[in-house]
């Protein structure tokens, strides 16, 4: 299943209570943590739970987290890949 990146952004904005941010403001390739969206490690807690809730995909360890959370684009790819398997 192909992940619609706009929908993914909307889910993240809504579930993480990101105020004053629209999907258009989020660069597909910008890092999710540290810079870019400006998320912090506690947002990662929510994000892991959100990904499981909406896509039934688990981020099992730090190595997977590093890959998945690189950017919105890589998160979408991670979800697609793990939904297949």
């Amino acid at each position: 299943m192909t992940i619609n990146m706009e929908e993914l952004k909307e889910i993240i904005i809504k579930e993480l209570f990101l105020e004053d941010i629209t999907p258009g403001d989020i660069d597909d390739n910008a890092p999710l943590f540290g810079g870019g969206l400006g998320l912090d490690s506690l947002d990662a807690v929510e994000l892991v739970v959100i990904i499981q809730k909406h896509f039934n995909v688990e981020i099992k360890d730090m190595d997977e987290g590093r890959v998945a959370f690189e950017s919105i684009k890589s998160l979408a790819s991670f979800i697609e890949e793990h939904q297949k398997s």
Binding site: S41, D61, M62, E64, G65
Partner: peptide
């Protein structure tokens, strides 16, 4: 990395 949050969860 990310404060160990993934491991905690």
């Amino acid at each position: 990395y990310l404060g160990g949050t993934i491991e905690m969860i």
